[in-house]
Nucleic acid binder design. Structure first.
Lengths: 157, 157
DNA sequence: CTGTTTGTTCAGTATTGACCGAACAAACAG
DNA sequence: CTGTTTGTTCGGTCAATACTGAACAAACAG
């Protein structure tokens, strides 16, 4: 194994650990990391098993999850029986949009709490209102930011 | 127990489950949820034990973590030996800032990967560049958004 | 100084979930 | 039809971790 491959594998581990912080499975992070640096960009299950040193079943389960979340695509080629996996072109926009959705969920959560507190108890409501106001603001502003990014991206391409 | 208390406890459970999604411990989410709706806003360990039905040691560990993350403050009162816990005034801004920091970490992660790939292999670098470009954009724009929020907040207060 | 209140730390337990190997299913080649 | 390739599903195992109870430490009251 070349020196560069060794460094890349180390990097892939780092990638796995990083995404583990966010509740993603270790293997999912590693697979994503490898698919970002591998050559060619599309890889088979066998190749992933070999590189990441995990079982076929892990690859199967993990890839299904990554595909479900939109970060990875399954690709096929004529005359080739194996499936290939590669990172989605818009993987990171998808990831970013998923986080925007979380802010909506936060605002909704705050609202559900406020619905349980009497209108009259102003002081008691203020904590949840602070929460709701921030996430409401983000709920409105983040899509604009995303839009700006997509435009800027389209221009430079 | 009143009907409202029952609904609130249900809500607190919901809160716990929601934050569990993000890797936060169940109890931490429950505690945060309760501290958002309780009356008065400051609560003792004993009260939290009673309401959340968890051990003293759990409250101790969990509160320390929540204080560490800046979401909760420890408060005391003259002539009162017990400690009180309450949600921090700027808890949600803190939470939001923590997420901004994650985008920085993402950009750095992408850059570390790019450092391992030869300058010449343009195709191979493009995946990581896509990742880095988005998070670079967010790294620059999110602080501006936060700033706007703080100004708006200051005005209406 | 003695006993009580308050909070932290630690060893043990239980639950969750990621991973593996094997059995299975489906598609294809000969 | 038969055997091979490819991928999924499922039961079992192992590791991580949240939680508990008990022992401990620290601060205070009498």
């Amino acid at each position: 194994m070349s020196n560069q491959d060794e460094q890349l594998l180390h990097y892939v581990e780092e990638f796995g650990l990083f995404f583990e912080q966010f509740g993603l499975a270790r293997t999912a992070g590693r697979m994503l990391g490898w698919l970002l640096v591998c050559d060619p960009p599309h890889q088979t299950m066998d190749e992933l098993m070999e590189v990441l040193q995990v079982s076929k079943s892990s690859i199967s389960t993990t890839s299904r999850m990554l595909i479900q979340s939109g970060l990875v695509n399954k690709v096929s080629f004529p005359g080739e029986r194996k499936d290939f996996y590669r990172v989605s072109d818009d993987a990171w926009v998808k990831a970013w949009l998923a986080r925007n959705h979380q802010t909506i969920a936060m605002r909704q959560l705050a609202d559900r709490g406020l619905a349980l507190l009497p209108e009259a108890e102003l002081d008691r409501r203020s904590r949840l209102e602070t929460m709701r106001d921030l996430y409401k603001f983000l709920e409105e502003e983040l899509p604009k930011l995303t839009e700006r990014w997509l435009e800027e991206r389209a221009k430079s391409a």
